[in-house]
Lab assay of single mutants.
Amino acid sequence: MEVRTIKVFTTVDNINLHTQVVDMSMTYGQQFGPTYLDGADVTKIKPHNSHEGKTFYVLPNDDTLRVEAFEYYHTTDPSFLGRYMSALNHTKKWKYPQVNGLTSIKWADNNCYLATALLTLQQIELKFNPPALQDAYYRARAGEAANFCALILAYCNKTVGELGDVRETMSYLFQHANLDSCKRVLNVVCKTCGQQQTTLKGVEAVMYMGTLSYEQFKKGVQIPCTCGKQATKYLVQQESPFVMMSAPPAQYELKHGTFTCASEYTGNYQCGHYKHITSKETLYCIDGALLTKSSEYKGPITDVFYKENSYTTTIK
């Protein structure tokens, strides 16, 4: 009895394709271990004539594949690729409408935090270190965002349907971005203890939790000093293409032309909904596939993004 075979390709990165001759009487799992086709788990399936010449994702289970996976995804987590594939199996079914010149995501599976993050990423200057993220990001900007969303979920250790947080998501993504040249110098002034300067680099240099107003941050924000008295913390120097200011959701007025974009969060910790506000020729609110415009805006804002380049204080 002759062994019926077909020729397929296996890959971990969709760049390096490895030619395989597979036995049609055995499952993919018996031949390769966990195997995925377009995100779908085909591990328990036997090869079919229609699979001839198709590319299958496999887990990096030998040295060659491990090197290829690390170079593309910059992670050695053995569960990463499987999590990416199972997320992709959902995100490829989502709709990605162009809204006001940006790629958004039609609401499904509690994905409003991903839509808000995706919209924000198209408006701030950011370059990702893992080629996987950078490639998928370019495709997302062009309207094909399924891979990018699935990668975000995998890097953030999230599953489809789980509630997510924009600030946490951005923080994970910033860790995989090139923020080497970003720098922030802060000064804390206390009447009792004097003053202390701190220099922050990388992710810490672009994120701040405690106030939404970048102007206020430049002037000074009140913080408790270690001595128990009130101290003032203010920005001395900022070198970065953008800054992200966050605070627990509270009524906040966004003035046209003073910011790049913002995240609105309605609801409580267990259950809520994100919308995205962007400042173009007027203010726009993007909620999944829905767009509304207004000249002014007041609502429960939790993150505001500002364009920056270089700032030095005039406070002496």
Rank of each mutant, 00 (worst) to 15 (best):
T302L: 02
T169D: 07
T27I: 11
K44I: 15
K183E: 07
F305R: 00
D109S: 03
S310T: 11
L114Y: 03
Y57A: 08
K183N: 01
T35Y: 05
Y274G: 00
E2C: 11
K44E: 14
P241C: 04
T302A: 15
G161D: 06
Y265G: 06
A117L: 00
N110L: 06
G53W: 12
G53E: 14
S246K: 02
R141N: 09
E68W: 00
Y269V: 15
Q196V: 09
L235E: 01
Q98H: 13
K183P: 07
C193G: 01
T192W: 06
T10I: 12
T260N: 00
T313A: 15
Y297K: 10
M207Y: 08
T260L: 15
Y84F: 14
V3I: 12
T278H: 09
P130C: 06
E162A: 03
K201Y: 15
F9P: 04
Q122P: 01
N157Y: 12
A142M: 13
F259V: 02
I223Y: 06
R141C: 14
T258R: 08
Q134G: 04
C271L: 13
E68A: 08
Y252L: 07
C112A: 10
Y311E: 10
Y28G: 07
G33A: 04
T5G: 11
T258Y: 09
V42D: 01
N157A: 01
L186G: 08
T75G: 01
E253M: 06
G39I: 06
S240E: 01
H48P: 13
V21I: 14
I315A: 15
C285M: 10
N89E: 14
E71V: 02
K233P: 00
V221K: 02
G29W: 12
S171G: 10
D135N: 06
I15C: 05
Q230K: 10
E215H: 05
I6S: 08
A150G: 05
V206N: 05
R184F: 00
G143A: 02
C261N: 00
Q196P: 02
I223Q: 10
N61F: 11
K54Q: 12
I286D: 00
Q98R: 15
K158P: 02
G210Y: 02
E204M: 08
A145N: 01
P249T: 08
E71Q: 08
K7C: 12
E52H: 12
V99H: 14
L179M: 11
